[in-house]
Simulated scan of single mutants.
Amino acid sequence: MIKIELRRLNDAFHMEARNEAGNTVQMDSSPEAGGSNLGMRPMQMLLAAMGGCSSIDVVSILKKQRQDLKDIQITITGEREKDATPSLYTEVHAHFKLFGDIDQDKAEKAVSLSVEKYCSVAKTLEKTAKITYSLEVIR
């Protein structure tokens, strides 16, 4: 079982989440909704979680393929339902930048395996959103 504890940091919406290892992340709401922008919004955290999940997969797969990955950067964008409550993601796109001496076919295989098969966050999001991805290898 995963356990996350949240505590309120101010009299509005600034919250801190802590996992069992003591790692923390802060969340808040927008000023328009009464927050102070002192942390990521929960729906932004969901996109960040997909990026983190996919990056772990891709790094692991490329290591197993003995590829010389020097760095990885992922940009994730999401579109949410307009004028809906709750406002779910309908489209999510992840763009992967892989730095190093990496075979293009192996990079494409690693990214597709992550997004389409292994990343639990992407698999969760795909229930309401169309998930797309692109990649570039930068040598």
Results as ranks from 00 to 15, higher is better:
55 S>H: 00
84 A>T: 14
18 R>K: 14
64 K>P: 00
91 E>T: 13
22 G>F: 04
67 Q>V: 03
136 E>I: 10
64 K>D: 03
135 L>K: 14
15 M>V: 12
16 E>M: 09
64 K>T: 01
8 R>D: 00
129 A>S: 09
44 Q>F: 06
25 V>C: 05
80 R>N: 08
26 Q>Y: 05
90 T>M: 09
49 A>D: 01
36 S>V: 08
39 G>D: 06
60 S>L: 05
36 S>Q: 15
109 K>I: 01
17 A>C: 00
139 R>V: 08
110 A>N: 10
60 S>M: 12
108 E>R: 15
23 N>W: 10
71 D>P: 03
127 K>P: 01
115 V>E: 12
93 H>P: 07
54 S>H: 03
36 S>P: 00
27 M>E: 01
62 L>A: 05
127 K>R: 15
44 Q>M: 08
17 A>R: 06
134 S>H: 10
84 A>L: 11
58 V>Y: 08
66 R>D: 00
101 D>K: 15
11 D>L: 01
67 Q>P: 04
105 D>C: 03
7 R>F: 00
92 V>A: 11
130 K>P: 03
17 A>S: 13
1 M>A: 04
9 L>S: 02
72 I>P: 01
32 E>K: 13
114 S>E: 07
124 T>I: 13
131 I>Q: 07
129 A>H: 05
28 D>M: 11
137 V>M: 12
2 I>N: 10
109 K>Q: 12
93 H>I: 10
71 D>E: 12
59 V>Y: 04
78 G>T: 09
42 P>K: 09
36 S>I: 04
122 A>K: 02
15 M>D: 02
92 V>M: 10
34 G>K: 11
57 D>Q: 05
110 A>E: 07
58 V>Q: 01
